[in-house]
Computed example of a mutant assay.
Amino acid sequence: MRVPNRSPGRQPGPAVASTTPSRRLPSADRPADGSRPDLAAYRAAVAELLVEVGALADAPSTAARQVLLDQRLREPAIAAVLDATPQGLVGARETLLLEMARHRPGSRTPAPDLTTLVRTYLLSRIDVLWWRDSPTLLTDDQVRTSIDLVDLEWLRRRGLLGFRYREQPATALGRGWWAVRRRVRPAAGPATGGLLIPRARREMIALLNDLAREFVSVTRAGTPPLWVTGLVRSAEHQYRLRRLGHPATVPGGHCLGWAADVEVDWYERFGARAALAGLLLARQDAGEVNVVDEGRAWHVCLAPGARPRFRRAYEAEMGV
């Protein structure tokens, strides 16, 4: 039996043991030669900036926020990361100011609060820094036909996925049915629009399977499995989300194929939110992923240094 990906597939086999790292990955956050930006220092500087942004979140503070950003984005710990992205420091600053200008607090759109918007943008620059040479998936058709992506539905039907997701309903009737079901049975699944195209990179499947196994091992019986609410999205779809008010960035980890959104807040009802958040942050500390708290769901991007290990894990799980 072969794993279909609309390209030559590979044969599945038995699951393998967890690939959770026992030590920090080399060259992930703090390389010994010092040639790469210090991501730990970057995250700490962003956290300090967010405190100040939160204090200036009201509308009359627009000018003060711009001055704050002009000053703080030029600090060495932040500038080193932004300079290393394709946009550079100036481009990142201009993009962030535009995102803040279009932000409409209190609107009916799904836009986050201002602090979450700034955190999401700045921390997602780590994804772009890591995968700057990875090609962007520009259209939905490219996502559907890419030989680098695997069909999740085929794997799910054969019990080869440890995590859950749902496919985005194609009709208004389907969306209405899901909304009713969610109101009637809120513990059956989180509030999510679902995946438009349920495909993913092999390494991301292995990462999410591994995280799902670890999550089961640290939660009590009856806790639902890991829920994934976002995976690969084309740049075309990112722009659709932006028109709906979502802070979807281009380029970003999703349209490069290296990011996923993992539901976190929903697990509060099962007493498992803190455990899941702890697992994600521990993997970030190990240099395995970049994590961004986006509120209800957390964004997770695989580090380049972890890619070979998770490719091997995928091949072992699928019997390649």
Rank of each mutant, 00 (worst) to 15 (best):
R125A: 12
G9L: 00
V3D: 06
L49P: 15
P186S: 02
R273A: 12
L276G: 04
A59I: 07
Q66T: 05
D127K: 05
V3S: 12
R312W: 13
L73G: 07
A179T: 06
D148N: 08
A55H: 11
I197F: 13
L149T: 05
R10G: 04
R132W: 00
T229F: 01
G106Y: 08
G305I: 11
T139N: 01
A172P: 11
R93L: 14
T145H: 10
L161Q: 12
L89G: 04
V81N: 10
A187Q: 10
P105H: 03
V250G: 01
L39T: 14
R36D: 14
T19R: 00
D113M: 08
A313H: 06
L73C: 11
L89D: 01
P247M: 01
A277E: 11
R43P: 13
G34M: 09
R157W: 07
I78K: 00
V118R: 03
T115V: 15
Q11D: 02
P12A: 09
N209A: 09
T85E: 14
G162C: 05
E48L: 02
E99W: 00
T171G: 01
D148K: 07
L276I: 06
A286N: 03
S234L: 11
L114K: 08
R74L: 07
S7V: 08
L256T: 12
F270L: 02
R199P: 15
T115I: 15
A92N: 15
D285G: 15
A111K: 08
L256S: 05
G91L: 03
A235M: 08
F215D: 07
A316M: 10
T219R: 05
R201M: 05
L152D: 07
D148L: 07
A206Q: 10
N290V: 01
S217D: 11
L280E: 14
L137I: 06
R6H: 08
G106E: 05
P247N: 07
M1E: 04
L302W: 04
A188V: 00
G295T: 03
Q284T: 02
D285P: 15
V262F: 10
R296D: 12
W266M: 04
D210T: 04
A32S: 06
A170W: 10
D58P: 06
D141Y: 13
R166H: 14
R166W: 12
G287W: 03
P26Y: 02
G9N: 00
P8Y: 01
E236A: 09
H103Y: 04
E263F: 14
R93K: 09
F270P: 04
T95I: 11
L96A: 12
T95Y: 14
L50Y: 08
P14I: 11
I147G: 14
A40Y: 15
P198H: 09
M204C: 13
T109V: 06
